[in-house]
């Protein structure tokens, strides 16, 4: 017998109708509508200054989102991404202030991110833990450690080169180096997810872990690798963030993991794993960030901005429900 869920509807070619089209491309439609709406309401929205501002903000959380999307596809989450970013970013500032050279600083930050990723991955596979719970714990842990070390105080005296890491203009007035780094990460990870064994293993483990294991995939090793890669991406995001802020801020990037997860899910990733892609997640993060940006331009109270952003996430996942149950 066929599985009843799969029996009748899904195997048969559907007529393409407008509702289906809307649902399929809802994220893109919403993004376009948002851009048009905000630019009609406020002339400031499409101004060079604002676009520049936008592109300076997005890469940090965007890079984290790319990592989280890869994790979601593998069927795992990481709530500690924000803390890893803060830890690695602050550590990078500390080393930069101490006078270490740029390659050493960046490499050290990425190694720190990998290390925390390894810790997350190792505990999850070794003790068969739920990633949600474990990373909830490590989130507090990592954040606590960096706050303890810095005593919660900003690390100041950042050398110029560190500030320029993400704030160097490239060609036009609204593109900065961090935008380029983000673009490179997106392209690289899109390629990895679609064209490498590693990427396809992510989908295999996420969609049916047992089938993947019985196909000879070393799922434990794979999951640790994914966490290490995700951790290093979070660290990279942290470095760019601190460079942006021009200070080592151990309490920054709180909730980035959750925000990135929301963006990935808006972009089509499934919480249950096996589904999702990097370009979709990028559209997801753009949607959320443009909303935040637009509301700020409209001069909305920042508290209500937060509420509205939350509302958008709720609406997005409800739309996703309809998309899945077409």
């Amino acid at each position: 017998m066929l599985n009843p869920k799969l029996n009748d509807g899904s195997s048969i070619a559907r007529k393409i109708d407008s509702k289906d089209l809307f649902l399929k491309y809802s994220v893109y439609i919403v993004l376009v509508v948002l851009i048009i709406a905000f630019s009609l309401i406020s002339p400031l929205f499409l101004s060079q200054a604002n676009i520049g501002n936008f592109f300076r903000q997005v890469p940090t959380v965007g890079i984290a989102t790319v990592g989280i999307t890869m994790l979601l596809v593998t069927g795992r989450v990481d709530l500690s991404a924000g803390s890893i970013a803060a830890f690695a970013g602050t550590a990078a500032v500390f080393l930069a202030v101490k006078g270490f050279s740029p390659p050493v600083v960046i490499l050290a930050a990425i190694v720190i991110g990998m290390f925390w990723g390894f810790i997350n991955g190792f505990f999850i596979v070794r003790f068969k833990l739920d990633s949600f719970i474990l990373t909830l714990g490590t989130d507090y842990m990592i954040r606590g450690i960096i706050l303890f070390i810095t005593n919660g105080i900003y690390v100041k005296g950042v050398p110029d080169w560190f500030y320029l890491l993400s704030n160097t203009k490239v060609g036009v007035n609204f593109i900065f180096t961090n935008t380029l780094v983000f673009a490179a990460v997106v392209i690289a990870l899109t390629y990895v997810m679609n064209h490498t064994r590693f990427g396809r293993y992510c989908y295999a483990v996420g969609s049916n872990q047992e089938a993947a294991r019985l196909s000879g995939i070393n799922i434990q090793k794979h999951i640790i690798k994914v966490y290490m890669l995700e951790g290093s991406l979070a660290a990279l995001a942290g470095v760019l963030l601190m460079s942006n802020l021009n200070v080592g801020a151990p309490s920054e990037a709180a909730g980035v993991g959750l925000f990135a997860m929301a963006a990935a899910i808006i972009g089509g990733a499934a919480f249950s794993g096996g589904v999702g892609n990097i370009p979709g997640a990028v559209v997801g993060i753009f949607t959320l960030e443009i909303f935040r940006n637009g509301l700020a331009i409209l001069g909305l109270n920042s508290f209500i901005q937060q509420a509205v952003t939350g509302g958008i996430i709720v609406i997005a996942v409800v739309v996703d429900y309809y998309r899945r149950n077409r």
Binding site: L6, R200, S207, N208, A211, A212, L214, S215, G274
Partner: peptide, 22 residues
Amino acid sequence: GQGLSLIMSVAENINMPNMQDA
């Protein structure tokens, strides 16, 4: 439950145990 990844394609399932190239 154990043999196939139902949401993945026929081709991907067939190649799953034998992806030799990175």
